[in-house]
């Protein structure tokens, strides 16, 4: 019951985060593409990198930006509490599968790796992204499969 409340709070916090991102997207009207996905950066900012020119973050979006940060931190902190709530009740019998299962979940970094590898300007960054996909995918697939193998042994009875 307690964890249900925390899960609801978490969902609300995530919605707040989404709203904040909208605010940011409308404020930084200059950069249309960043509204599509927070991970997408327009190509003209990439050419800045090529010239080694300093980045100049739009001051108009700074307040929206700090709202996003606060929302992300909120999500992080609440998720830590959800994690404590759930994991504390797991019996010692299941601690090893729990660890390998949560390990597989930490392979969620694969999402970041896919974004990095699929970046529109193919370059050294995309290559590192590909290597990251391999590492994270071993973590994900290996973790879930080995957990499944162990849990089947517990299920037999």
């Amino acid at each position: 019951m307690k964890s249900l409340i925390v899960v609801m709070a978490l969902s609300i916090a995530t919605l707040v985060g989404l709203v904040c991102m909208r605010v940011q997207a409308t404020q930084s009207g200059k950069n249309q593409e960043s509204a599509v996905s927070q991970s997408t950066i327009s190509s003209d900012s990439n050419s800045e990198l090529a010239q080694g020119a300093p980045a100049n973050p739009q001051t108009s979006s700074d307040s929206g930006r700090s709202l996003v940060l606060v929302a992300s931190l909120t999500v992080f902190v609440l998720s830590v509490f959800v994690g404590f709530e759930i994991i504390a009740k797991v019996p010692p019998t299941l601690h090893t599968p729990l660890m390998s299962g949560s390990n597989a979940i930490s392979g969620i970094t694969v999402v970041g790796a896919i974004i990095a590898a699929g970046y529109k300007e193919t370059g050294i960054g995309s290559f590192f992204g590909m290597v990251a996909i391999v590492l994270a995918m071993i973590n994900v697939v290996g973790g879930f499969l080995v957990t499944h193998r162990m849990l089947l042994m517990f299920k037999k009875r």
């Binding site: 998720s79 994991i87 930490s106 970094t109 974004i115």
Partner: peptide, 23 residues
């Protein structure tokens, strides 16, 4: 997750971080 502004990474990472600390 904070680098790429992605809540799924932040939530999953926090869950695993918490479970590791408990263990």
């Amino acid at each position: 997750g904070f680098v790429i502004d992605n809540n799924a990474l932040i939530i999953a990472g926090a869950l695993v971080g918490a479970s590791g600390i408990i263990l």
